[in-house]
Amino acid sequence: MRNILSIYKKELRSYFNSAVAYIVITVFLLIAGWFFSSQFFLMGQATVRTVFAIIPWIFIVFVPAITMRTIAEEKKTGTIELLVTMPTRDLDIVLGKFLAALTLLGIAIAFTLAYALTAGMLGNLDTGATFAGYVGLILLGAAFLAIGLFASSMTENQIVALIIGVVIIFALFILDWVTIFLPGPLASIFEFLSLNYHFNSIARGVIDSRDVIYYLSMTGFALALSVRALESRKW
């Protein structure tokens, strides 16, 4: 636990000491803000649904960009050798890094509350659906981060990590698009595995335990794979 905290603090500090955190938050808010403001006044409705619809798409690129250096860079510079020969478990390292990235993403998401407040001031905001949307975003973001971390743990090249991350997340995200081409049972499996499908159902305002469990297990699975990849030196 203490080790997780040490790594968490170090990672978070490195996000905010370098330009990474500021760039990520600024660009994220610019894009999300543009989509929010350009749609908001056209629709004439006090809702942040449009933002929730676009943020997952921004995340597909942004989240692997946050996580790409986490493990890849340690492999490249060799610091991973020091880290794993400390009395820490590989799981602690992965969790510390994951939680730090989640915090950064959480801060970026928290800034979008400004949109919700704006909408709330101008009209009657559906607070329940908005709350659900935020829960969905955090869950979705956590799953994306875990996948991005896994991508970073497979290579020592950050760009490769970014590309692998985007590809895996994108593939899992659009999995429910191909269902029309598939026979019934297979279609429902694909639909269930899709990152997008579960988000849509939460964003509608219904926090279903199935969706929550889906995201948590997706996150856990990807983190477990990251630990395995980190352990690959032992194979």
Partner: peptide
């Protein structure tokens, strides 16, 4: 690992720290 102090080859360090 608790008993050992290790200086790896090439002395890897976090340059931004």
């Amino acid at each position: 690992r608790r008993k050992i102090g290790y200086l790896p080859e090439q002395n890897p360090l976090y340059h931004d720290m």
